[in-house]
Simulated assay, not measured.
Amino acid sequence: MMKLLEFYKELFEDAASRFEPVWQADLAYSHGFRWTKDNYPIQEQFRITDMGDEPPVIMFSIVLPDMYSETNVFDEVYRYPSHNDMSIVLMSQQIWVNASLCTSKLEQSVLGFIHQARSEIMNIFDCVILKTDVVHTKETERHIR
């Protein structure tokens, strides 16, 4: 009998091979399955994580350049209204913005989830403001008055 983890892996691999064949499997990942995709200048990652007795969790992540640490991206990720669980993690001097969902709540295809998550994360980036620009703008406004 096929485990749910294997089922979602096959769904992803079948769809990715037809529509996004640039995903690379990370065979060293030990908590389920992980694939990466270089989408210059950012890296994307998709994971299907084994949750033991619970249904697997799928997660799409984008790795941001370090310059985003000087922005309000942390506030924007948690403020963004989403059906997915949005999170942000600092790890190895990289910023990971994640959208995750338990497969029991999945209402679309696996690639549909990835495309929606990617779109939501990109919407967040559109709202991100460099903190130094905000400070500079306020100082400039003060001098103009």
Rank of each mutant, 00 (worst) to 15 (best):
R79F: 00
W96Y: 11
P81V: 05
F74V: 13
E70G: 12
F60R: 00
V57H: 05
P56A: 07
V97S: 03
E54F: 15
S69D: 06
E70V: 01
S82I: 06
Y80T: 07
M91H: 15
V57D: 11
P65C: 07
M67Q: 11
R79V: 00
S82P: 12
I88M: 13
M67Y: 11
D66F: 03
V73K: 07
M91Q: 15
I95K: 02
F74S: 00
V89E: 12
D66G: 00
Q93T: 09
S61T: 15
M91I: 09
D66T: 08
Q93L: 07
P81R: 05
Y78I: 10
S69Y: 04
L64W: 02
S87L: 12
I88C: 08
L90W: 04
E76L: 08
D66W: 05
E76H: 00
R79A: 11
D66V: 05
Y80M: 09
M86F: 14
Y78W: 01
V89I: 14
I62T: 14
D66K: 11
P81Q: 10
V97L: 04
V77Q: 04
P55Q: 01
V97N: 01
Y80K: 04
M91V: 13
L64R: 00
F74C: 00
S92P: 05
E76M: 11
P81T: 04
I62E: 03
V63R: 09
A99R: 03
V97P: 03
N72D: 15
V77A: 04
P81F: 03
E54Q: 15
M59Y: 08
E70F: 11
P56K: 01
V77P: 02
E76F: 01
Y68D: 05
S82D: 11
D75Y: 00
P65V: 12
D85L: 14
M91R: 15
V89F: 04
N72H: 04
I88Q: 03
F74W: 00
M67T: 13
D75R: 02
R79Y: 01
P56M: 00
V97E: 01
L90D: 10
P55N: 02
Q93Y: 09
M67A: 14
I95A: 02
Y80F: 13
L90R: 12
S92D: 15
Y80W: 10
S87T: 14
S82Y: 11
M67D: 13
M59H: 06
P55F: 05
L64H: 01
A99M: 08
L90E: 12
E54S: 15
S87V: 08
